[in-house]
Amino acid sequence: MLEAIKNVKVHLLVLALVVGAEFIGILKFDVGPGKLVLLPMLYAVFLGTFLGPKFLKVVNDKDMDNASALVSLTLMLLMARYGTLVGPKFFEILKAGPALILQEFGNIGTLLIGIPIAMFLGLKREAVGAAHSIAREPNVALIGDIYGLDSAEGRGVMGVYICGTVFGTIFFGLAASMLSILNWFHPYALAMASGVGSASMMTATVGSLSAIYPEMADKIQAFGVASNTLSGLDGVYMSMIIALPMSNKLYKILYRIKFGTPQEGK
């Protein structure tokens, strides 16, 4: 890490990327019931990619290694801020009731569907990173802590994180309206499920639902916000204690079925 700290070039490039990205700012486009949201972080990662040896050749292999080595630590500042978003609402969440708490276990549905699909598509360890959770910030930080973000697991979680950031609000806005047409679930249940730990995804869902059921809008919004805050509170614990171990176990079983041998390496 010491070498990475002393690589002033990397820090200056990052500073330039940040200044450029923040200067462009947030761009929003209405798409159907959702919004396509482009955030400065996306410009930063996109422009950063172009500095590499394949394109502009501004950075060399050593610079790239140095930059990657620092990512999981830079995530910690975001996580500290994340904690401070949850803290003020701590007691409201505790009061929110059993339905809210139990629906959090729905996150396990993520890995039960996601891991087999990812492996069917030919992913290996990427599958565990990509499908153990919905890959919001705390999940990315956790995978970074345990495997490192330049590992296969890290690439998986970052990929889903970036897709979720770009398409998440459109997807959730559409999913909420489509599920309300199917009429399988009560609008309150749809509102509670929207809290996956991303304020923008939750807002898109609650927005569509409120437009469809204006007479229930107040309660829909309250459930959405409470559930989202609860995910913020328990998301990282849930991932570490339940979802990640389950994903690894499922991966091991599926690996043996698919390839007929126990998984190599760890």
Partner: peptide, 11 residues
């Protein structure tokens, strides 16, 4: 964070 990730992503 994503700027550091972006610089490192090339490899």
């Amino acid at each position: 964070i994503l700027a550091y990730a972006g610089v490192g992503i090339g490899k």
